[in-house]
Design a binder for these strands. Structure first.
Lengths: 336, 336
DNA sequence: TTGAAAGCGCTAACAA
DNA sequence: TTGTTAGCGCTTTCAA
């Protein structure tokens, strides 16, 4: 079997059916020039009858403005990523663009190169790169400068225009809050950083420095909550830890579970805070103190910048937003 | 400012630079026919120098086989959706395809029509429709049959080829387990169903019928854990409920929180089970008893079927997989 | 208001 | 092994 399907009608079929020339059909398609009502009607009818859909490929070729935006990301199902992508997709769709997603699984040359090549094989109008992690950063470096690009990140950096979340400031505030509760210092479990150090970690360091607190060695988690659980178990055995700042809520949940398995209660024995304000954060026991980040808005903003560039507008280098502290019940004063 | 960027080189630029004809360049590009090593080298050099990338639009136009797969979904960030999309993307990428995502926000005609039109404006090779919910189902109905399509769902249905999860069987097993624990009946909180009734609900009904238990009116949640919390609060006041089967883990977590707010403990006062085996399910307190569904595998399977169709192969109508029960600690025998 | 002609960047057929 | 010639389906001149 296979392709015995009747091949789709093309513009000339419509023209013939309507008894007009091809350019006339094109004109009604684009609503561009004057077409007599009579012919317009005939054309419309023919289109309807034949179920005609103009070929996207041909259009892209001749118009030189594809309606496809490519998003490059290190992963797609992690909360922050998924929400950012949702924001991009939603606003892109409203503006008549489709979005493609390509994940770059690791930062090694071959993987990055393959993913980039794949993307460039598509007729794309522009790119949004989620550079929350090393693969994203690596991909950004491989991209030809000739394609309009916007990046999305948690820290300001020079380069392409960027939609950014002021994570460092928010993290500093959050850790400052913990310190204010009376904790001597705050331990840190970080998620995979985009570079040597990401905004969350920087903010943590700044808060500790501000009060002259000890700066303990951070723990490294992966994106999996399970890695948080393992770290939680370790933490449970360290009697000096009274407060833990986790790189995101999912890791915080894992850490809390690990702590529980190790016999420690939150927030009675140790305070644990997260980051992102995941929808489950407030359902957790205890409800998580965290920082609310509007990733969907971030994605929308990134698309907005890209749209500006595509429209030939002058676009600001940065568009940043400040996350907000959300105090719930997973942090308390240390036991005296 | 805007487009003062030098426009990208095209194949004829390469041909000129390499001192060969355009088709020769095309030949080395596609590795198709014989090209002398000498010319091949020159061409390769020219390509490198000019940073030439063949136009995807032109290729799609002439080859009639675009390398883009469109995924249509009711949402993108919900766990099951996100994972399925990841599975599609991953296997598509391995096969040299890019995937685009379009969300259909509701099932109303206009929304569906707009989304479909957007997708059809792209040069797509095939479609994967996630019909876990009404928007997905509606979209599927609007799609022209001329485009190779595969759907993904929790229940077998005729129509286009389908990758399916045998949710009803798994739900039946899970509810049966609860009944086996000694519960008189099991209440049900369902997530937005794809049609009048989805597999999870059907399985629940079957399990109750099998033992002649009462069939209480199900509760309807949205995709938001918060809706589960609200329902949990209601449930807390109903002393006859001893076991609750939730449509997914996130809702289960919300329900448990609501129950806790209403003074009920899980599983001591009431047993609650979820569905999906979300990565956070085992981190929860208590760890959630649920059903493991391999959505990524489901997505991969869907792409596999699509690839088969595109390759002109004969493809089976269904490809199903049986989820597995995961017993943890959120369910126990009822208090006597 | 309309049609004829040209061309977008590429690949496929056909000679040479 | 290579170049010449034709399109792919559409939009955009340019005349009429």
């Amino acid at each position: 079997m296979g392709n015995n399907a009747p091949k789709p009608p093309v513009i000339s079929d419509v023209a013939r059916a309507a008894g007009v020339s091809v350019p006339t059909v094109s004109r009604v398609l684009n609503g561009a020039a004057y077409v007599s009502d009579e012919k317009r009607l005939k054309v419309l009818q023919a289109i309807e009858e034949l179920q005609f859909r103009p070929s996207a490929a041909a259009r892209a070729l001749v118009q030189r403005q594809p309606k496809l935006i490519a998003v490059i990301a290190g992963n797609t199902s992690q909360y922050g990523y998924a929400e950012t992508i949702r924001g991009v997709e939603e606003s892109a769709r409203a503006a008549g663009y489709t979005v493609s997603i390509t994940v770059v699984e690791s930062a090694d040359d071959e993987t990055v190169e393959r993913a980039v090549a794949l993307i460039l094989e598509q007729p794309i109008a522009g790119l949004v790169v989620l550079k929350f992690d090393p693969p994203g950063v690596a991909a950004l470096h491989r991209l030809p400068k000739s394609i309009p690009t916007v990046s999305v990140s948690g820290v300001r950096e020079t380069g392409v225009p960027q939609a950014v979340l002021a994570e460092a400031d928010a993290a500093e505030e959050l850790v400052g809050y913990l310190l204010g509760l009376g904790h001597r210092t705050v331990h840190h479990v970080r998620v995979p950083p985009s570079r040597k150090e990401d905004g969350r970690t920087t903010g943590w360091r700044r808060a500790l420095a501000a009060v002259g607190a000890d700066v303990p060695e951070p723990f490294d988690a992966t994106w999996e909550p399970e890695s948080g659980r393992l770290i939680g178990r370790e933490l449970a055995d360290r009697s000096e830890v009274t407060a833990v700042f986790c790189g995101n809520d999912e890791i915080a949940m894992g850490v809390i579970r690990g702590l529980a398995e190790g016999g420690k209660r939150v927030p009675d024995d140790v305070s644990v805070v997260g980051f992102d304000d995941h929808p489950l954060a407030r359902m957790w026991s205890p409800p998580l103190t965290t920082v609310n980040q509007d990733f969907a808005e971030l994605g929308a903003r990134a698309f907005g910048m890209l749209e500006g560039i595509l429209g030939g507008k002058r676009v600001r280098k940065f568009s940043s937003e400040r996350p907000t502290l959300v105090i719930r019940e997973s942090a308390a004063a240390p036991r005296s």
